[in-house]
């Protein structure tokens, strides 16, 4: 995608390369990279750093029979090369794997204000959900207790900082309070991950918070 303006941060790319991010963040990172060659190239760089760190670390002798075991286990048939078909829907492969298909396979649940979500199963370090925000609707005004990644998959939203179009990712932290509003036109579909509950600034969303697990 050529017109992506908002990218992953270096710290996220390094964490993803090192393999130390929670699974929920890994999913958002992998999905953005599927759409963005800029970040794909940056990631390759951070993986090269990882390779060099590995090569600099003190080696540790393998068991005496290790090579024999390895040779005995080799099979003659290499894994098949799978030629990728062009993506038909709006979900890149890593996301489609978690949903079990493209957007029509999502099991949406209403969370109020016309907004719908589906929480995707991951390990416990952070949570990730798909959000469906009708054109013109907004997510209630909120702040963040940790990190929030929001990747746009369809449509666009605006907040106090900028406009985020398809493929763009917003990286929000404790310092940002915002009210994301979906643009007119297509409904906005986002993939959003957080490692701490949001801080809603009005009473009603706060009341609903335990039920929708945001």
């Amino acid at each position: 995608m050529k017109d992506i303006k908002h990218h992953l941060t270096n710290s996220l790319l390094m964490g993803y390369a090192a393999g130390t991010l929670p699974e929920a963040f890994n999913l958002v990172v992998a999905t953005h990279i599927s759409l963005c060659d800029e970040c794909r190239a940056q990631l390759a760089e951070f993986e090269a750093v990882g390779g060099e760190v590995m090569m600099r670390t003190d080696a540790m002798a393998m068991n005496a029979d290790a090579l024999d075991i390895a040779l005995a286990a080799l099979t003659d048939s290499p894994e098949e090369v799978q030629i990728k078909a062009e993506r038909a829907g709006i979900f890149p492969t890593p996301l489609a794997d978690y949903v079990g298909g493209d957007v029509e396979a999502v099991r949406w649940r209403r969370v109020g204000g016309g907004v719908k979500q589906m929480i995707l199963p991951t390990d416990s370090g952070a949570t990730v959900r798909l959000l469906h925000i009708p054109a013109g609707a907004s997510v209630p005004d909120h702040g963040h207790r940790g990190l929030e990644l929001t990747l746009v998959l369809q449509g666009a939203f605006k907040d106090e900082t900028d406009r985020f179009g398809t493929g763009d990712i917003e990286v929000a932290n404790e310092e940002l309070d915002h009210t994301p509003v979906a643009e007119d036109g297509l409904d906005c579909i986002c993939l959003a991950a957080t490692d701490a509950p949001l801080k809603f600034n009005s009473f009603l969303p706060r009341l609903a918070q335990p039920f929708v697990k945001i």
């Binding site: 393999g19 599927s34 990631l43 993986e47 090269a48 590995m54």
Partner: peptide, 24 residues
């Protein structure tokens, strides 16, 4: 680099017992 990425993925798989979503 390549071997590092394979090792990292196996480490997440086996030690952290988590899935590792990979870019398309």
């Amino acid at each position: 680099t390549w071997i590092f990425t394979i090792a990292r993925n196996r480490q997440i798989d086996i030690i952290r017992r988590a899935r590792r979503p990979e870019p398309e």
